[in-house]
Design a protein around this nucleic acid. Structure first.
Lengths: 209, 209
DNA sequence: CTGAAAACTGTACCGCCGGTACAGGAGGGG
DNA sequence: CCCCTCCTGTACCGGCGGTACAGTTTTCAG
């Protein structure tokens, strides 16, 4: 029914916020049911155990993540036909989106799962791995398009460069959260943008000294 | 006395490995005492509670981390007087050290604590924050030296560039662990090296097309 | 060698939490 | 009307973090 989905979503919302702040092990089911106003039995009606909650949580997070990237980079694509310009614009839009988050980025569930590997089954670890591989493919695809037009100034492996986007995002989140400086993440994305720009854009004017 | 320190260290060793694999919440004290062959009372003789264990763990980790960076970059400094060359060499040495880790990087405790914030007291969060700020200062110092000699090709903020080193390391660890590709982290460090090289090294030959 | 401090062991207990089991009830759609 | 979804209520289990505290062994300084 519809009501069931709604409750399930509410549980997932509460759980996601809690897990990103305290990790899976630090988040108790009792606390989740207290905040959602559901009973323990109600909770276990929706999720067989914590592992299944984690699975649902991660899948939803990844889907949402993909959707956001789809939106940003397709919007950037509409605004300019050039693959490099649209990628650079996409990074700009991404950094703006990140700096607009009122309390900073809440954290990445992929990283949370990564630092929790041993507690989950193979399936959830595979899901996580595939999420990172999807990032690699996504950014790799765009970078390959760029490289067909713009020869890179230094020889680089496309997959490694694609991974760099993920690295900077994941690392930027850790820095931003740890420092309690919400803007650091956005700045890191712009730093990456500078790298990509410098790597592909032909040398024209150089503001020496 | 001496024996006590030894046991304490053994507990910390076991705890560190466990925490990096399962997070703090996922690591039980009972499991730690089982593996170290100590009793529960013995454990609580050394650490008042889990929070104090975390504190000791984090402090030890940070100290060790700093020591490693000290060694690498001072060795790089000895081999060449030029600040840019020694920094690039340092990154190379770092990437080699990382790719020599038999089972890949075990994970960063700073990131673990970051994704666990709400479970710990202010002190441990401050410690974590200071660790990241220390990285910023360390890499910032080296980058400032470089910038005195080499004008950057693009205008960049030194602190943000310094943070980029931390970002790529933290992010690279997440990617490497999630993908179960130990080499990804080392590759990311080399990718960062390419960025730094390109940013500061004057344009000479360009292997166009 | 001795004695005191350090470094534990053993036992018993508390309350929270994850999880199980199962009975039953509200409420809406066919 | 009845069945299915979506829950509630109750009772219970074992594991875990943590406390309390008494007693024992090990270590090292004098």
């Amino acid at each position: 029914m519809r009501k069931g989905e709604e409750t399930r979503t509410r549980i997932l919302d509460v759980a996601e916020a809690a897990v990103l702040q305290k990790g899976f092990g630090g988040t108790s089911i009792e606390e989740l049911i207290a905040e959602t106003g559901i009973t323990k039995s109600g909770f276990f009606y929706h999720f067989r155990d914590k592992n299944e909650l984690a699975k649902a949580l991660l899948n939803r997070y990844i889907e949402n993540d993909e959707r956001i990237y789809d939106e940003i980079f397709s919007r950037a694509r509409e605004l300019t036909g050039d693959p490099l310009q649209s990628f650079l614009l996409g990074l700009k839009l991404l950094s703006e989106l990140l700096s607009d988050l009122p309390n900073g980025h809440p954290g990445c569930l992929v990283a949370t799962v990564c630092y929790y590997e041993r507690l989950f089954d193979r399936e959830i670890q595979e899901t996580n791995r595939n999420a990172v591989l999807a990032w690699r493919r996504r950014f790799g695809r765009m970078l390959r398009e760029i490289m067909e037009v713009y020869p890179p100034r230094e020889p680089v492996d496309v997959d490694q460069l694609a991974d760099m986007v993920s690295s900077v995002l994941e690392g930027g989140i850790v820095l931003s959260k740890t420092l309690k400086e919400p803007n650091t993440l956005a700045e890191q994305v712009l730093m990456l943008r500078t790298f990509v720009k410098m790597l592909f854009l032909p040398v024209a004017e150089m503001p020496r000294a």
